[in-house]
Simulated assay, not measured.
Amino acid sequence: MRREATGEWRGWREATEEALYGPSGFYRRPEGPAGHFRTSVHASPLFAQAVARLLCRVDEALGRPGSLAFVDMAAGRGELVTGVLAALPADVASRARGYAVERADRPAGLDHRIEWLAEPPKGITGLLFANEWLDNVPVDIAEVDSEGVRRLVLVRRDGTERLGEPVEGADAEWLRKWWPLPCEEPHAASEGPHVPPERPHPASEGPHVRPEGGHALPEGAQAPAEQAHAPAEGARAEIGLPRDLAWASAVSALDRGLAVAVDYAHVAAARPPFGTLTGFRQGRETLPVPDGSCDITAHVALDACAVPGGHVITQRAALRALGVSGARPPLALASTDPAAYVRALASAGAAAELTAPGGLGDFGWLLQPVGVPADLLVDVADHEEQ
């Protein structure tokens, strides 16, 4: 681990909070998140249109209430809420109210009908949608030391790290339940999808993968039981309890409706052995340095976030069920209506990006119904690919 540096030692959660959301934090920068990475919202208007169709389904399940809320968590510069409201049918749009929840200041020129808030309003009826929010809820990092003890990782402003005190209390309990060491009793495997550790970015060279190390066993040999279950020195985990609490708080804002969290994620059966903490700047992955110069993010244990009744599926399954298909238009259309063919081809390409295996299509969607039938989106789950 890197040692030579000056400055205060802090846990990653505290350091990330200041680096992202402090007065000079990354998310206070004028260019906004879209200046550094591209989410599904930025990839194509098809995404906002699909979310608008989901809001219409929620509207039907709620019996067409007089006021229908759409809450955009971590709204960036309001791109998603703007696109969703614009895509609604007139009868739904007349009853819809848009809320953008974001710590940064309200951007100039945003539709005056959209309320800009620091927290979601309470007692709402409708759809709360959190696209790539939870991955930026700061968390502490735990690392296994040479004696097999999980310790907090401390960091300085320049990214220098060292190990601190052993993880204790509620954080230690969360790790035992949701991210156990090989020697600990594992949590029952989640039914949610394994989401590969990728975050598509323009001009990105792909995520850095830290090698696991070690030596291969001779062919046919088996590791001794005590070695197979021994904690691996250097193994890391992100302590996801703050995200669980943040999600539960967001869901509590709903009186009735549906809450959806979309993120690049992993589940109990396939936690990454060295964690996923990383940084992004100007479309490229970089070392996570908590000085406000880059995004600091880590994948989300969505199965841990889910409150009772929640279910995790892939973005590919959800979007296909909501009418987003990457199928090419019939070639005959090129002869009868060339312009329509070109438009349909472009739409198919955008849909393919949003649903691509190994990319955006593998993101997890945590569906959390509140006061509506649990099978509200059963047809979405039925599209899940095995």
Rank of each mutant, 00 (worst) to 15 (best):
Y21V: 10
V84H: 06
V155Y: 05
S252F: 05
R343T: 05
T286I: 15
V209N: 02
A356H: 02
V84Q: 06
R3E: 14
A321F: 01
V267N: 02
G279R: 09
F363I: 03
E198R: 05
G364C: 15
R29F: 09
L302A: 12
V58L: 07
S146R: 14
L181W: 00
L277E: 07
A228F: 00
W12Y: 08
V307A: 15
A318T: 12
A216W: 05
D111H: 13
G279F: 01
R343A: 11
A250F: 01
P211G: 03
G83N: 04
A221Q: 13
N136W: 06
G358Q: 04
A356L: 08
I313S: 10
H36P: 04
R3Y: 02
E285Q: 08
G11W: 09
G123I: 08
G66R: 15
D337T: 03
L360W: 02
E285G: 10
P211A: 02
P45A: 05
A261Y: 02
L367K: 03
E219Y: 09
Q315G: 12
W133N: 11
Y21T: 09
E184C: 06
P197V: 04
R113C: 13
E219R: 15
G257F: 01
A96K: 07
A346E: 03
A270I: 04
K122F: 01
G25F: 01
E184F: 00
P338T: 10
G310D: 15
V153L: 13
P65K: 11
F47T: 10
V251W: 02
A306D: 13
P290D: 05
W179F: 08
R157D: 10
H229D: 00
G63S: 11
L345I: 01
A104P: 14
A104T: 15
L88I: 09
R106I: 13
Y27Q: 09
L181D: 06
A381R: 09
R64A: 15
T286P: 09
V300G: 09
M73A: 06
D263A: 11
T39Y: 03
L376T: 05
E185V: 10
F280L: 08
G257H: 00
S293E: 07
V260D: 02
P288A: 12
V51N: 07
M1E: 10
T276W: 06
A228I: 01
A237Q: 03
V71L: 11
R95I: 13
R284Y: 09
R316P: 10
H187M: 11
D105P: 13
A381D: 05
G83P: 03
S347V: 04
A188H: 07
G22T: 03
A61Q: 09
P180L: 07
L367E: 02
A248G: 13
V262H: 01
A270M: 05
L54C: 12
R210N: 00
S335H: 10
V139H: 06
T39I: 11
G214Q: 03
W9Q: 08
G11F: 11
A87Q: 02
T6Q: 10
V41M: 00
R106D: 09
A301V: 03
A189V: 06
A269F: 00
V195Q: 03
C294L: 05
V300I: 10
G240H: 13
